[in-house]
Design a protein around this nucleic acid. Structure first.
Lengths: 334, 334
DNA sequence: CTGAAAGCGCTTACAG
DNA sequence: CTGAAAGCGCTTACAG
């Protein structure tokens, strides 16, 4: 491994001077600069990041914390975020956070062992020490896809979850549906909030809520949606529409309904939230609420970037607008 | 930031001794060990990775190099790989490699700036310096999803691309199809190989190959598949089946065919390669070749792990078995 | 079993 | 503009 010392020798200057040209310091004579640049070009030298990180305060590295099992929407968002980070010159590390306190503890260890310039959370963290660490060490943090309820000085970017669920539900109601099922999760905030938005919309419209038409998924993915729908049908309570918490859940749900002989949307309408890439290519094309994925990723990164640059961490909770995309999976109740 | 020095002071021992207990060295008296462990627990100290990396030879970190725009299959694979790496105690960095030499150059810089223990390539790299660097510095490398044609001492895990394309094509032929279109890419190896496998299968079966029924995509995703199919139809040359290079391409293709009034598989059969999560939930369910995704990820990581442990880099090119999954998107020609 | 010392590859005052 | 020196937080012989 070639080091800064080698370059200094080759160019016949001191290590300090080499460091200066590497870091764009202006006070270097043209002659020495030339010799150093040549030596660097010849050897293909690139400064060792570990050494640099150790001595500098900043690492230009941000950590992305993800749910252990992440869905399509989160995958797309992750990719978006990673690209934005890269464009701004950041390195990124990512960490899967298992869904239990032990797992969060492990992640905290990892977080501590690096000197991250910033943190992006795509999943909620319960461990209080985690937040304390971030706060004490003044590490800028931005939450993405969920609202910041408990953390002081931490910003967030998300959509109004309750409102979105409300709009999806109202859409169904406006189509004449009165017996509406819900397929969703309950463990994480967005599940809780989407469920709350659903109930609230029903209530406001004077449409009855049926306990028996609410079914919670075990896994937030296609399989989970299909399995939950199976349980729903077993209850043998009639319904003409389904509000699924996510597109993936809706895809699993629709598959199962079709397999049981239902036609979508003629027999049953299905609406969801997310609008992943795939959704407009399915049969039927999915009616869903579009989360502004690209904007969300871009904004989260740029907010984090601002906080890192400014050193301040003024709290900012940004609720982005969403849109109901009417496609083919919902229709008037017959 | 609390450091090893602080722990040494707190426990009233030398820094060396603290280092010993951190690293599981046995030669430490019970009494001192106890004091040190207590100090660590009290302070929540975790060793600084940058410092450790600098002095050690090994970083326990592997780099994952991904295509700039990566499809579902690659996303799933990435997630699989990341989890496997994590389970083995590795840290991982990932890098998106833009599709041009400048981009590869930039990635090489990044690669140099870190001291990676190993490298996983999910995309081909053309830049010779890249390989040279890996080879000179003896960094274990495993290629995933494509065969290793040019690199010495580098292992790979993949399926037989030509064979898989052949099996998909033969499936169509066995169903009585004689005018078979192909929707695929040409820029990267798997595109080239899948196209070659397609032609070879046609030839061996004595089924004619039609230049006009071959259409190359601009983007290897759903939109690309849809757009390519549109161009295919414009040519107005009849066909009764399509071989799409990937599931995503097939999804875009099927969508477009349906929108033009074709019924799948009654009018046109479609087969693909990959078998992403979604494929068995679509309408129609996709007939496709299943790549052993989990096995591929597991194996790639374990091979890399072996190479890192042993220090040797015996070349091993593993071609994993694949399976044709017959579902609903293909049928006998009427 | 233990500590003092050297060194990993950089950056950053400091003095000139 | 430039170099010698100190130091970042660790690990690793070395000597005891």
């Amino acid at each position: 491994m070639i080091s800064i010392k080698d370059i200094a020798q080759l160019a016949e200057v001191s290590v300090s001077t080499v460091s200066r040209v590497i870091n764009g310091n202006v006070y270097v004579s043209d002659e020495k600069r030339r010799r150093i640049e040549q030596a660097i070009a010849e050897t293909g030298f690139v400064p060792n990041r570990a050494a640099r990180d150790m001595v500098r305060k900043s690492t230009s590295k941000v950590g992305i914390f993800l749910p252990d099992t992440f869905n399509q929407f989160q995958r797309q968002l992750f990719s978006e975020i990673a690209h934005n980070l890269e464009n701004l010159g950041y390195y990124s590390s990512f960490f899967f956070v298992p869904t239990n306190l032990r797992g969060e503890q492990t992640c905290l260890q990892k977080l501590k062992s690096e000197r991250l310039d910033g943190v992006l959370l795509l999943r909620e963290i319960e461990l209080p020490e985690f937040r304390e660490y971030l706060s004490i060490n003044n590490i800028p943090t931005v939450l993405v896809t969920f609202e910041n309820t408990a953390w002081k000085d931490v910003s967030s970017v998300h959509i109004g979850e309750m409102e979105a669920a409300g709009v999806a539900t109202e859409h169904l109601i406006s189509l004449g549906h009165r017996r509406i099922a819900m397929v969703g999760g309950s463990r994480f905030s967005y599940g809780v909030q989407r469920a709350a938005g659903f109930r609230k919309a029903l209530e406001q419209a004077g449409v009855p809520y049926y306990e028996e038409l609410t079914v919670y998924v075990e896994a937030n993915n296609i399989v989970g949606g299909s399995a939950a729908t199976s349980r729903l049908l077993e209850r043998d309570v009639p319904f003409s529409a389904v509000f699924a918490h996510t597109d993936e859940l809706a895809i699993g749900c629709i598959r199962h309904l079709k397999d049981c002989g239902f036609s979508i949307p003629r027999d049953i309408s299905v609406v969801a939230i997310d609008d992943i890439e795939m959704s407009s290519y399915l049969s039927p094309r999915l009616t869903t609420i579009r989360q502004p994925l690209k904007e969300m990723g871009r904004l989260a990164v740029s907010m984090l970037h601002d906080h890192i640059k400014s050193g301040s961490s003024r709290q900012e909770n940004i609720s982005l607008p969403f849109t109901l995309i009417r496609r083919e999976s919902t229709a008037e109740r017959l």
